[in-house]
């Protein structure tokens, strides 16, 4: 994609696509071409378009909306600084603000709802050559074989055997931990510290690795 024409970002409930200034027809074409090239990714997505200060009339928006819905993509909202465009969007029943729908209709006076952190969950065996990189936490239900690599901005939890290379706190978070039912990584990194597991003696037990005084330590992973 020509990055100077459109830009795609993931947002809370869908994708935000910024249409850069320039000829609208050309931009519309670039967008649809890009979507067609990545149809698997976009299919079923909810899109928010940010068209900047561009003035768009209802027919222009509705033709784009139809083109998108032909591709099973829902145009949810159009963001613009232009009053004309905003009115056109409202006429078509589109939202004109980001995340309008995610606001709860009634705000509870005491909010006990927790947001939690972002994590990816993988229920499978990670084999040699597989790599998972995620800015949040990584949770694996399965084995991580030698030659596989996990890189997380946060913690890494493996409910299974961990024998590949793992890096928790890759962004420098020294509080990050790595837990596994069998913690035998080829190499384990937390923040900027690197360690290798000592040869295992005796029975495997769940373990947790963390940083202590700038050193990677591991202890049994249980309730205490």
């Amino acid at each position: 994609m020509e990055a100077e024409k459109i830009e795609v970002k993931g947002i809370k409930n869908g994708l935000l696509i910024e249409i850069k200034p320039g000829n609208w027809q050309d931009r519309e074409e670039s967008l649809l071409t890009y979507i067609d090239q990545n149809l698997e990714f976009f299919k079923g997505a909810k899109l928010v378009l940010d068209v900047g200060e561009r003035e768009l009339k209802p027919p222009m928006l509705s033709s784009l909306r139809n083109a998108l819905s032909d591709r099973e993509i829902k145009l949810k909202a159009v963001l613009s600084t232009s009053r004309t465009t905003e009115r056109a969007s409202q006429d078509l029943g589109l939202e004109i603000k980001l995340d309008q729908s995610s606001h709860l209709p009634v705000q509870p006076s005491i909010n006990t709802q927790l947001e939690g952190d972002e994590a990816v969950f993988l229920k499978r065996t990670l084999r040699s050559g597989h790599k998972v990189k995620f800015p949040g936490h990584i949770v694996v239900l399965g084995d991580v074989n030698p030659g596989a690599e996990l890189v997380a901005g946060g913690d890494i939890i493996v409910w299974g055997r961990l024998r590949g290379v793992v890096h928790a706190g890759a962004g420098g978070d020294t509080d990050a931990v790595v837990c596994a039912l069998d913690l035998s990584p080829t190499q384990l990194r937390i923040a900027d510290k690197i360690s290798v597991s000592p040869p295992r003696k005796g029975k495997t037990r769940p373990e947790i690795a963390y940083l202590e005084n700038g050193q990677v330590s591991a202890r049994e992973w249980n309730r205490d």
Partner: peptide, 10 residues
């Protein structure tokens, strides 16, 4: 075995 693991993944 390591290479077999990679092949299985592919």
């Amino acid at each position: 075995v390591r290479d077999a693991d990679r092949i299985i993944g592919i």
